[in-house]
């Protein structure tokens, strides 16, 4: 549905944000995983018609995004990673304002949609308060509400769950899933769980390049039988890091659990079922080693 070909962007300060990105985003949820500074937001902004690239092309449903941005804007819902709001305007008024800009012209329909979205993001009871006075999580939910106005065909949400408590995060996930399968929804995040819970398709972006693309289950299955874990002390962990392809190191009940990737079982390690986090970390590890 959305296809990106040969997208490259270098900023004036020399930072190469995107480096020949090629991506096919089908209908449904698409997870874009990447560490901080990978170029996710640059890619999201470029798709959302807010910046152009040095080279490459983006088309959505036969709309050429760079040459006809207004056509895409009619069908787009966008939640930026970081945003502020106009001062002194209540949540209801501001969402209504944006619904008008989005093109919901009928007054009754607009009221229905605005109130509905406020209810779905659990802001209905705060609708008369100024958005500028909202806490971080509430403001984020407001951002989600405005991105869904006008039933967009392409939804781009950049780190949508940042600042949400677990309950609100679940609510948001359920809302996204309920939107139907006819849209392309791009979820950019650094949280692996968000992707593994929601997305039938995903890609890993790092240093402006797409490192991996596919279905999370299939990608995880490929790694099955190659992930080994061991509970070690801090010193041992360091030793393993220098001698083996260590893909993750996390704490459990005060002990360090390391995951390594290997064809055959290393001595002293137990077999571990592969998960998406292993896929993500092993991809980043290979990329770093190659660099």
């Amino acid at each position: 549905m959305l296809s990106i070909t040969g997208l490259s962007k270098t900023y004036d300060n020399g930072v190469k944000a995107l480096n020949n990105v090629n991506l096919e985003v089908p209908k449904g949820m698409f997870g874009l995983l990447g560490p901080n500074g990978a170029g996710k937001s640059s890619l999201m902004r470029t798709i959302a018609t807010l910046q152009t690239a040095d080279a490459g092309q983006i088309t959505f449903d036969s709309i050429d995004v760079f040459n006809d941005p207004q056509s895409l804007r009619k069908r787009l819902g966008y939640l930026p990673q970081d945003f502020g709001v106009y001062p002194r305007i209540s949540a209801y008024e501001l969402l209504d304002h944006m619904a008008i800009l989005k093109g919901i012209e009928n007054n009754g329909e607009r009221k229905e949609a605005v109130e509905g979205l406020l209810a779905h993001t659990n802001l209905f009871q705060h609708r008369k308060k100024a958005v500028s006075g909202f806490s971080g999580g509430m403001r984020q939910r407001f951002g989600i509400a405005q991105a869904l106005l006008g039933d967009p065909d392409l939804i781009i949400v950049d780190e949508p769950t940042a600042g949400l408590d677990p309950e609100e995060r679940n609510r948001f996930h359920n809302l996204l899933v309920s939107l139907g399968e006819e849209k392309a929804i791009i979820l950019s995040t650094h949280i692996v769980e968000d992707v593994s819970e929601l997305c039938p398709n995903m890609a890993v972006l790092a240093s402006g390049q797409i490192l991996l693309e596919g279905n999370p289950i299939a990608l995880t299955d490929q790694l099955n039988g190659q992930i080994w874990k061991k509970s070690v002390s801090l010193d041992e962990a360091q030793e393993i890091e220098s001698s083996m392809p260590l893909i993750s190191k996390r704490l459990f009940a005060g002990k360090t659990i390391v995951h390594v990737m290997a064809e055959n079982q290393p001595e002293g390690f137990d077999a571990a079922p592969a998960n998406l986090e292993d896929v993500y970390f092993s991809t980043l590890l290979q990329h770093r080693n190659a660099a």
Binding site: G103, I104, E105, E112, A113, E115, L118, H120, G150
Partner: peptide, 16 residues
């Protein structure tokens, strides 16, 4: 009751 509202109301295809 607002939860039951339609939130998938399509916007107009032309820019007013």
């Amino acid at each position: 009751s607002a939860l039951a509202n339609r939130i998938n109301i399509k916007n107009s295809p032309r820019i007013n």
